[in-house]
Write a protein that binds this DNA or RNA. Structure first.
Lengths: 207, 207
DNA sequence: AAAGATTTTAAACGCTTGTTTAAAACAAAT
DNA sequence: ATTTGTTTTAAACAAGCGTTTAAAATCTTT
């Protein structure tokens, strides 16, 4: 897909591709080496072990994933515009990287009590001040009184799930790949209207 | 969790538990045997191979999963009531079996061109006549003009994703297990209102 | 109680896994 | 050209994998 100049980057690229599509338990070191076009030993020469290589890939993927959700919050838009833009950005990101949500959730489940935490990214999330902004919007009546957890869940669910459940939905409705790609584009507008209508309801002529 | 009378049922129970929590690639035959409290050879004596055992488990899980989505459609309720009841039933089912959506989607992805299809269940889905019913409701203006695929996607996303993304969401908001359980209960009502408001909008005094 | 059929086990099979070793190929420097 | 250090490889390691074998244990039937 890309250039992959140095050997180290070649390995990282191959590992990312293989880990994303098969997960940690679903692939072997030799498979990654083959994808990178080299010997198994060379992979371990650069990254010591399969697990160490995985941790590096996981961190960069997780970072990209969280960043795609957060960068909108740093803009100067109204809250409603922010939500709208966030949905656009999420669909844009997930169209390019549809395996990421499944990958992240699976590996978090596989490695519960271990090193796959998200402390840094979590702090960045709080620092955007979007929670304070939302609380204000709710006080002023601009936005419906929905707690921040459910707000997060609504947006994540309606953005991520269509990409995660692609195979099932395609089989269920007998759709081709091209048809589903089109559906995604249409679906984005539908859920955007649904969510915005819910969060920012049109006042019905009182006051 | 249950009685598990015969040896065959003991194996099935153990296999279901292990497969659901770790997936096919994430567990070993010996792990299943140990969970069932017996030798590895005995598992293969009853089920020939790990893959054969998996296929049996997958089929029953898939059946339960699809059934939970479909049984509502056989009732005599209005379409709006059906959607409402469907959401209730889905949350009820997923509270009891939260790993099933992730399991099904993962194994479908692992075994793309193979025997994990859903032909039977798919036919049952069409036979409920819910698609015809929805088309009628749209013609009469009772329901908003949303294609059936997006309707499916909206309901599945808002029901399944909160259970699939539990670990991530809990970490993101620093919630305990008990707090998240409460959140789920609250969230069900929120997405129910959001979805019903969208699908069956209140007419604004015209006609 | 003995015979036969069924269920369960311990042990091994060949193969693949993640990882390491030691030698080869290559590059840089003297 | 030889030495030095780095990169790459082929080959091996023990451990674990799915699966099979053959014998032990248990149950059925007589």
């Amino acid at each position: 897909m890309c250039k992959a100049s140095t050997t180290e980057e070649k390995i990282k690229e191959a590992a990312k591709s293989v880990f994303l599509s098969k997960g940690f338990s679903g692939c072997t070191s030799r498979e990654i080496a083959k994808e990178a076009g080299m010997n198994v030993a060379l992979v371990n020469y650069y990254f010591r072990s399969k697990n160490q290589l995985f941790l590096i890939i996981y961190q960069t993927v997780m970072h990209d994933f969280m960043l795609s959700m957060m960068e909108v919050f740093s803009t100067e838009l109204s809250l409603k515009e922010k939500v709208s833009l966030l949905i656009d950005r999420e669909y844009e990101f997930l169209t390019k990287h549809p395996e990421i949500p499944t990958f992240v959730l699976n590996e978090m489940a596989r490695n519960k009590d271990a090193e796959l935490q998200i402390h840094e990214t979590l702090n960045n999330f709080a620092q955007t001040g979007v929670f304070v902004e939302a609380a204000k919007a709710q006080m002023s009546g601009e936005m419906r009184q929905v707690d921040m957890v459910s707000l997060t869940m609504i947006i994540m669910a309606n953005c991520q799930h269509p990409f995660m459940a692609r195979l099932l939905t395609q089989q269920l409705h007998g759709m081709t790949d091209a048809q589903y790609d089109m559906q995604i584009i249409k679906h984005k507008e539908i859920i955007k209207e649904m969510i915005l209508n819910y969060l920012f309801p049109k006042k019905s002529t009182n006051e």
